[in-house]
Design a protein around this nucleic acid. Structure first.
Length: 275
DNA sequence: AGCCCATCCTGTCCGC
DNA sequence: TGCGGACAGGATGGGC
């Protein structure tokens, strides 16, 4: 499930290969994907010959800026993949869009088994407005006082739900929320405004540490995640709780990891380490 | 305000 | 071995 570190890894890979290139054509292979476009959508033909000025990330969103104000807004949701490959690489039934380039032999593919993800053709101004109205601040840019004030503002929420809420902080999903909470030693069902100053500090540090470390290790490959070169990440090897129900905690080595549904998501935690 | 649930979708896994 | 149902989850929208 691509979250901030996976999306950042994909963006860095695409940026180094694609910024400055000119589009050959953009083709949608799945009509379904086109229908999901919010208005005002731009026609794919409009992208021919345009230069890619910038590829960037906001939360879990991937954004392409092209010359002439055209943009792409992409979300991988759970099983989406965005990678470069040879045009000869087989196109299967889960490949929903492809983009070729005038000055590069590789092509870009958007593939998504569950079709929850999207790739929208929109003006960059539209993308900017949407992204900024729908998403809270970047967790890696957030300072401690901003973090504290957001904890207070949405203090009634369980901390797990708080971390997952893209409007509060953008980019954290189910894997990283659990991995942050074990390192902060806080139970996922604690209320956001009931954390002690020490716990608040630990949570802030754990959030930064886990996200930075996961980016360094190029993300977690749990199910379908691969980066822009089709390669897997390595952070799953560092997971302390996620997906480890019934196994011994890797932190205290004596308590069995429990799983409980919190904020609608299965949450893994150590009842001994997390208070 | 915040929780829970259903929804979108398909592959995987488990039990019978 | 095969079938069917449960499950997984990011985000949204509705109801409480």
């Amino acid at each position: 499930m691509p979250e901030l570190p996976e999306v950042e890894t994909v963006v860095r890979g695409l940026r180094s290969r694609l910024e400055g290139r000119r589009v050959g054509e953009l083709v949608f292979l799945s009509p379904h994907l086109g229908q999901k476009q919010p208005l005002p959508a731009l026609g794919p033909d409009l992208y021919r010959g345009r230069k890619i000025d910038k590829i960037w990330r906001r939360g879990k969103m991937i954004i392409f800026n092209f010359s002439g104000g055209c943009g792409l807004l992409i979300h991988l949701k759970m099983t989406g993949q965005l990678y470069l490959c040879s045009p000869k690489h087989p196109v299967d039934k889960h490949t929903h869009a492809r983009m070729t380039f005038a000055d590069l032999s590789s092509e870009l593919r958007f593939r998504d088994i569950r079709k929850f993800g999207f790739l929208n053709c929109l003006p960059t101004t539209e993308i900017l407005t949407r992204v900024n109205s729908e998403l809270g601040p970047e967790p890696l840019d957030l300072d401690f006082s901003g973090f504290q004030s957001r904890l207070k503002k949405h203090g009634g929420k369980k901390i797990k739900g708080w971390l997952l809420d893209q409007k509060i902080v953008a980019g954290i999903g189910n894997i990283y929320s659990d991995e942050i909470l074990i390192r902060a030693r806080i139970r996922p069902d604690r209320l956001a405004d009931r954390l002690s100053p020490e716990e608040t500090r630990r949570l802030f540090r754990a959030m930064k540490f886990v996200l930075r470390k996961a980016i360094e290790l190029r993300g977690s490959s749990i199910s379908d995640y691969v980066d822009s070169k089709g390669e897997k990440g390595k952070f799953q090897q560092k997971h302390l709780v996620y997906g480890r129900e019934g196994l011994l905690c890797r932190r205290c080595r004596k308590t069995v990891i429990r799983r409980k549904k919190i904020a609608g998501r299965s949450s893994f935690f150590c009842p001994h380490c997390q208070k």
